[in-house]
Design a binder for these strands. Structure first.
Lengths: 158, 158
DNA sequence: CCTTGACCTCAACCATAGTTGCGGTCCTAC
DNA sequence: GTAGGACCGCAACTATGGTTGAGGTCAAGG
């Protein structure tokens, strides 16, 4: 059990924040190293978190579920006001950012699903209305290495 | 350029397979170590792939886009018939498997989006119709560490 | 024959997202 | 004032999905 003493407005120990946010203590340390959360320290060097870190950690977890990497989450968090506790409007603004990211992810997967649907019947795996179908293993007949590439259009390499 | 000699039914060198599938040679080696693709060898120990490996690699890439880890893709591939070249029906069966996985992923993200929608206006981040709203930092008032956990229901830890 | 690019293995390394374990410290309840 | 759980930093380790480089081999064209 984490140390718990004092009223509703006390700061949180790392154990408390871990328990209430559902995130492991080691993960909170990790987030701190990555600049995603911040803490003050007691005289004895122990972390004490402002209570709005609960919200911040919640934001991090939800963002991860959307599929956003920690580095990007950090960038979003860095746009929060510097000194003061973020307001609901601040969080609402960030939430709408990942709402957009979520919409994009869903759209991308739906696109993939649509492209795929017609291909399940024939097993062609071309994702392009089977126009490149080329009847089992006749792809390379130019022999010049510039023949059809099945995925590049849909899945461009960086 | 990969080595290219012979007609449309020759086997593929690793460079050719890489070029035609859009996957790096190093990744093909990696897939082979993980048991996702297989090759025969020439007298000089160079890999030669049957042409249906193109389809197999295509399956791997698409599965990855759906979000399936390589280990699971391998399990799916292991269900293909052992000796013979897979037929279109074989691929169609596997495709329908990840079609289901894709549907599930989309449904999960849509669920997240729906839960989220009502919260953007208020910034509460509770994902539970704000019933746990608790007015900025009053969460811990029982002081027993058993208070509300905002994410556990939606994002259970393993 | 000989050059040269494609290929081979193996080990090390990268990023992401953490967890685990060690030796030592803090601090609260008894 | 002391027991002991919570905490500290640090380093090493996990897993996933590969890439990079060293040192050496293969094989096709000139």
């Amino acid at each position: 059990m984490p140390r718990v003493t004092g009223g509703a407005h006390r700061m949180l120990s790392v154990g408390e924040l871990a328990e209430r946010s559902g995130v492991a203590v080691s993960a909170l340390h990790f987030y701190e190293r990555k600049g995603l959360v911040a803490s003050e320290r007691t005289a004895g060097n122990q972390r004490r978190y402002r209570r709005d870190m609960l919200r911040r950690v919640a934001f991090i977890r939800v963002s991860q579920r959307v599929g956003i990497p920690l580095a990007d989450i950090r960038t979003a968090l860095d746009s929060l006001p510097d000194g003061r506790t973020p307001t609901k409007r601040d969080w609402a603004r960030l939430s709408s950012i990942w709402r957009e990211a979520l919409d994009e992810r869903i759209a991308a997967l739906e696109h993939l699903r649509n492209d795929l649907t017609g291909c399940i019947g024939c097993g062609c795996l071309s994702l392009r209305t089977c126009s490149l179908q080329n009847h089992d293993d006749e792809l390379g007949d130019t022999g010049d290495g510039t023949g059809p590439r099945r995925w590049d259009d849909l899945n461009p390499q960086p």
